[in-house]
């Protein structure tokens, strides 16, 4: 760990003013990912500006939707009655991630800003353009089991690990920020970047730009999140899928789909969304959509398994969200989201 200074911000403005002019300063909130990376010598901030005491911890009604303060804990958001009822994909994504202890600490703005689980990023002795621009990418020729199928570059094949981000992308949430040049609104699907030749930049946020809230827009349709992982709890997604859809007269109206675990950002599928709109839902249609969704996947040496896994997951998520197949657990819970369920039960409750 590198020596660093610490200060606690009294207001969002003060926090931004402290970080913006200092390239070696960062915000810290729950710290569940950031502190690990500091201990691993990956993050080496000289100044930590603690934003966890800022008054950004409310969930409130907002323009027919919900405004979730940046500092709301993952636990508080996941179990909030309006979130669970109106945006079950958000609760499912949160509760299918991390552990209770981590969710208690982690915040709603921090979660989508967590760094990749690419193991080479976490080993300072290995080449990583995300950690050290220009040093190369050890993952491309290395053990790339958890890496990207879509949108990767010659500089980086990392995936984004946040479950929450996938649900927020499918729901077209909005991110409110306060930056050195004042407040702005970012559409969630635009928050994260593809790696290109600047993989050290995960998002479009400027240095010193602080997320103040995440807004869920008015939505009366159904949403759902599904996740495949290597153990039944406390594991990052191999592949995940969030669906938000509205139905009318037995037909799908608008359908929004995002995949997780397959790209440097939540991977929205606009062509698939267009293909599904105004169609009567059916397994056949969904299978065709899944074929199309993965048509341009570019598997690496160790991650080709994600293609059949992802196709099936997409079909399953569409079937379950559109009601053609029951959820495998109560909506808004980890049991709905975790493919395979937990050990001990013979089969998921129907």
């Amino acid at each position: 760990m590198h020596p660093f200074q610490y200060q606690r911000a009294e207001s969002a403005e003060q926090a931004v003013a402290a970080v913006a002019p200092n390239p070696a300063a960062t915000f810290i909130a729950g710290g569940t990912s950031h502190v690990d990376l500091m201990k691993e010598d990956v993050h080496r901030p000289a100044l930590l500006v603690d934003v966890s005491a800022l008054p950004l911890r409310e969930i409130s009604a907002f323009e027919g939707g919900l405004r979730i303060g940046a500092g709301v804990s993952n636990t508080a958001a996941a179990y909030h009655a309006d979130v669970q009822r109106r945006y079950p994909a958000v609760s499912e994504a949160l509760l299918a991630g991390a552990s209770m202890q981590i969710r208690n600490m982690a915040t709603m703005a921090g979660n989508p800003l967590q760094r990749t689980r690419c193991p080479y990023f976490r080993d300072p002795t290995q080449a990583c353009n995300k950690r050290q621009p220009g040093s190369g990418c050890a993952a491309i020729g290395g053990y790339n089991h958890v890496h990207a199928l879509f949108g990767a570059s010659a500089a980086c094949i990392a995936t984004h690990p946040s479950d929450l981000a996938v649900a927020l992308s499918a729901l077209d949430a909005r991110v409110q920020t306060l930056g050195p040049r004042g407040p702005r609104t970012i559409a969630f699907p635009e928050l994260h970047r593809l790696p290109g030749d600047t993989p050290h930049l995960d998002t479009v946020l400027a240095h010193g730009e602080l997320i103040t809230s995440i807004d869920l827009l008015a939505f009366t349709g159904r949403s759902h999140y599904l996740k495949v992982r290597e153990r039944a709890s406390y594991a990052y997604a191999l592949v995940s899928c969030a669906v938000a859809l509205e139905m009318s007269g037995g037909k799908l109206q608008r359908v929004r789909v995002a995949l997780g675990g397959v790209a440097h950002k939540p991977w929205r599928l606009p062509a698939v969304e267009a293909m599904l709109a105004e169609q009567p839902p059916s397994e056949k249609l969904f299978r065709a959509a899944a074929q199309a969704a993965f048509a341009d996947a570019r598997p690496l040496k160790h991650n080709a398994y994600k293609v059949p896994m992802g196709r099936d997951l997409l079909v399953r998520a569409l079937l379950e969200t559109s009601g053609l197949r029951p959820l495998q657990g109560p909506a808004g819970t980890a049991f709905a989201a975790s493919v395979g369920g937990v050990a001990g039960q013979l089969a998921a409750p129907r």
């Binding site: 690990d36 689980r117 193991p119 080479y120 976490r122 080993d123 002795t125 290995q126 050890a138 020729g141 290395g142 053990y143 089991h145 290597e230 153990r231 039944a232 709890s233 406390y234 594991a235 990052y236 975790s338 937990v342 050990a343 001990g344």
Partner: peptide, 28 residues
């Protein structure tokens, strides 16, 4: 545990990504 086939360094070196069974993986 996977060692990188070129460098021989352990690729995963933490208990978030090296998986041991959670309670949800262990039946009665």
């Amino acid at each position: 545990t996977h060692y990188d086939a070129r460098t021989g360094r352990a690729v995963v070196r933490n208990l978030a990504d090296y998986h041991v069974p959670s309670m949800a993986d262990t039946p009665d």
